[in-house]
Structure formats: structure tokens, C-alpha cells
Amino acid sequence: MQAFTTLSAIAAPLPMANVDTDKIIPARFLKTIKRSGLGQYLFAGLRYDDAGGERPEFVLNQEPFRHAEILIAHENFGCGSSREHAPWALLDFGFRCVIAPSFADIFNNNSFKNGILPVAVPREVCDQLMEDAKLGANARITVDLGRQLVIRPSGQEIPFAVDHFRRHLLLNGLDDIGQTMQRTASIAGYESRRLVAKPWMPVIAV
């Protein structure tokens, strides 16, 4: 996983609430056995018309937002399916950070696992940031994970909260499977205790 420290980038405003993962990437694009190459399908229903042509009114079909690395949206971003294809598609398009008033739980988890930082700030702040974002390439927004700040083009600093443990993993780009595998003794100990406490626990063999 790529570490996330600070990011100064163009931000794309998407003023919609309850952006579900079917909207982020429709199910027909989940038939892949790879993680890469999904950026072209990101927001397919909003981005392309029925004939596959770009809808010019959609933000990611406009300059400079084709190069945006920060996405700003409204409440409950990423609700619905657990598909990790949603953060994969965002990442492949170039997004490293999503700012919204709130996130659905599974999407929130999946983002951290892929080096995408979900930043929750109040709705009014999101709306201010969206206004900043509309100014385009001359109004870069900065996200500093180390200091836990979003910095507006005006220089105003907006603090945000992030889970300490996840922040640590993300700042250092740490693979959490590798971390857990250092605890195999703990896991083996738990499994021995479980065998004694729940001897009835069936095994699956077909």
C-alpha cells in the first residue's frame, strides 16, 4: 500500500448525498480478477451516456477535474455494497482522498486499506471546500494527514479526526496482513483456548 502523508491537489466537487457503491462502479464492471484498470468505469452511470459518450456536464469530464486527486461529496458517501472495486476505481482514476460529512462503514475501511484517506468534516465545511474546488487548478486543497488538517486555498486550516491506529498504518504505508502475521503465537493461543471452550465447534469439509 502506498503511504499517505500530505497531498496538495485539484479537488472535484460532487454535491450528492448517499453516493452508493453501485454509482461509484456499477456491478457489470466487477467481473474482473484484477485490482487495476477500473478508473475508466468510475461513476460510469453519471459519466457516460447510453451510447458510451462522455456527459459534458459531469464534473470529471471537465478540465481541470479530469486531474483531480481529491473528491468532495455529501453525506454517507460509499453506502451499499462492500465491493472494494469502489476504492480501486477511485484510486485508478487518481483519487487519494475523499472529503465528505460522513462515510459508510465498509467503504471507509476499504479506503484505508488502499491508501485512500476518507476525511470527515461538517457539511458546512464541505460546502466551503466545494466552492474552493470550483475555482479549479488555481485553488489547490491540501490534506496533511500527519497534522490532521485540511488547508483551504486561503490558508485556513480545518482539523479533522482520524483513528490513531489507521493513521499510523497509512502514514507508513504498512501492510496490515504483515502486521497480523507477527502475532501468529497469539492466534494459535486463541485457537487452543477455543478448542477447549467450544469443543462442539464443527469443521467444514465437503
Partner: peptide, 22 residues
């Protein structure tokens, strides 16, 4: 509960997950 593919890999490899209580 539902998990993403990175967590699927984590469970396959370790039979555990890193989680905060809800």
C-alpha cells in the same frame, strides 16, 4: 458483517481481522 477484498485476504491468511467495536 461484510468486508472488502483486502480484509478477505487478511482473514484467509490469518483467520482474524483488525476491528474496532461498533
Amino acid at each position: 458483517f461484510g468486508i472488502g477484498t483486502s480484509e478477505v485476504e487478511h482473514v484467509l491468511a490469518t483467520q482474524t481481522l483488525q476491528q474496532k467495536p461498533a
